[in-house]
């Protein structure tokens, strides 16, 4: 599709719009902007965008309505939700609507870049029809995913292993370092628990699919980051936790 445009930013706050615009243009991306839901709907109808960044709180309409509209009108477009702190819960729920990822305000240059790059790459995969299906090592384990990129494997003993989907490393450039949480720390569903810094200045925030107490870290991925892509559901796992609120949180995940 030659008339495909890069990015649409739907955001009522001017400074956030400008920041996104500036960062993304620097990447050489074309950016359109919409201030309210009406013009947003209008632009989505008229143009085809690869990636759409949208605030959930917009004057005139609920952000969910716009996401639904985008996903039905333009299924290939990847939606990234910009959230204020207050809409974090809602953002997690919006994964059910097929949202690619979300980025909480305030974000820095690298964080925005990271998520947009990944979305663009995923978009390419979608267009090429080559989205890989999960390579599950042990079929006895239940696999749940949060959005497109993180997963949780439920062990029969009650613990859960968290990691990134095989698509995730593909969407990143060369990995510089993997920032794992503290052992004894906690994960909270929808909050970043691992940061992956790439060679090209982008920061990839990995969101925890489940909340719980961390009982083990896979330190191997610090040295051998290629494990993330070569064996994401096996040796490439990130942390193992004891889930805290499993039943409720599973509702926000998709069963694979």
């Amino acid at each position: 599709m030659s008339d495909e445009l890069d990015i649409l930013v739907i955001e009522d706050e001017l400074v956030v719009q400008e920041a996104a615009d500036r960062v993304l243009r620097l990447e050489g991306l074309g950016v359109d902007r919409a201030m309210d839901s009406e013009s947003a709907v209008d632009m989505v109808r008229r143009n085809v965008y690869k990636v759409i960044l949208s605030d959930l709180m917009l004057p005139g309409a609920s952000g969910f309505d716009i996401i639904e509209l985008i996903k039905t009108a333009r299924p290939a477009a990847q939606v990234i939700v910009i959230t204020g702190y207050a809409t974090l819960e809602n953002a997690i729920k919006s994964f059910q609507l097929g949202v690619f990822d979300f980025i909480p305000k305030p974000f820095d240059f690298g964080e925005l870049l990271g998520v947009v790059r990944r979305a663009l790459r995923y978009h390419e995969l979608v267009l090429a029809g080559s989205v890989p299906s999960p390579l599950q090592a042990d079929p006895a384990q239940e696999l749940y995913a949060l959005g497109q990129h993180t997963w949780a494997l439920l062990d029969p003993e009650g613990s859960a292993t968290l990691g990134v989907a095989e698509t995730f490393p593909n969407q990143m450039g060369e990995v510089n370092s993997v920032e794992l949480p503290d052992i004894d720390g906690y994960t909270t569903q929808g909050r970043c628990f691992v940061r992956i810094h790439s060679a090209d200045d982008a920061v990839y925030r990995v969101l925890a699919p489940l909340s719980g107490q961390i009982m083990a870290l896979n330190n191997r991925v610090r040295e051998e980051s290629e494990l993330l892509s070569s064996d994401p559901y096996g040796d490439g796992w990130l942390v193992r936790i004891i889930p805290e609120n499993l039943e409720e949180e599973l509702c926000n995940l998709t069963h694979r």
Partner: peptide
Amino acid sequence: IAHEINNPLTGVLSFSSL
């Protein structure tokens, strides 16, 4: 206050990191 500050903070953080 936090909500109000978040937006300008987004501007400061992304431009300064840029």
